[in-house]
């Protein structure tokens, strides 16, 4: 019924004046969506802040169980993936689809590495009994804080929701890589790449806050 702007790169939807007009609108939409993402995580950060204030020892005990080395490694991985993502946008903007494609693939690989590391972290927590909430038995893990389950509840909720965003990001980046390969993007049209790029940077940014709060703050 309406013209589909994704199929014809330099065209624009009927209700916009120009491709530039559509691009600016799309970008504003993406940023607004990012506002909602940050506010959603904001609720978790507020919960963290409140209970960290009430139970500092319990949080210190929980943080000690996490491997800061793995967390730090993952931080570097995500920062690197932000770079490759940015390059993926840049090369699409200057009509170098091939380079853009490989940078997107690199972003995917880095995201995959992040998830693999996360998997090992989760697995070791599960094995040693540091489960979320009521599944954590303070006696079997030898915890001094009776409500240590709250720390791991928050840990799994925060990193789990973030991990879900990483997975969604990977799906979107795969779609971008496919479309880059197909030659959909060029100097005149790269809105989806930039939009997903913004999303990906926000996902990285959230991790940059999660890492010190959960792993380092004792």
């Amino acid at each position: 019924m309406t013209t589909n702007h994704s199929a014809t790169a330099h065209h624009h939807s009927h209700h916009f004046d120009s491709a530039q007009h559509e691009y600016e609108s799309d970008k504003e939409g993406i940023w607004l969506f990012m506002v909602t993402e940050i506010l959603m995580f904001g609720g978790l950060f507020v919960a963290y802040a409140i209970f960290h204030q009430i139970y500092p020892e319990m949080f210190a005990e929980g943080a000690k169980q996490l491997s800061w080395k793995m967390g730090f490694f993952n931080t570097l991985v995500l920062i690197a993936s932000s770079l490759t993502m940015a390059l993926g946008i840049y090369y699409n903007q200057i009509n170098k689809s091939n380079k853009a494609f490989w940078n997107l693939i690199a972003t995917l690989v880095l995201a995959g590495i992040f998830l693999v590391v996360k998997y090992f972290e989760y697995a070791s927590k599960f094995e040693t009994g540091f489960l979320p909430g009521k599944f954590l038995n303070p006696e079997t893990v030898g915890a001094t804080s009776q409500n240590l389950g709250m720390y791991f509840g928050l840990y799994f909720c925060m990193t789990g929701l973030h991990g879900l965003h990483v997975v969604i990001g990977m799906i979107l980046i795969s779609w971008l890589a496919y479309r880059t390969k197909r030659g959909d993007f060029n100097a005149n049209y790269y809105t989806p790449v930039e939009g997903v790029g913004i999303f990906w940077h926000i996902v990285d940014l959230i991790w940059i806050f999660l890492f010190p709060l959960l792993y380092l703050v004792g």
Binding site: L39, L44, G133
Partner: peptide, 19 residues
């Protein structure tokens, strides 16, 4: 979005008992 995370936390509270 704040309602969203509140409701998700309520679900987590019921399923996981995060407390």
């Amino acid at each position: 979005p704040v309602l969203g995370i509140t409701l998700l936390l309520l679900v987590a509270e019921r399923v996981l008992g995060i407390g």
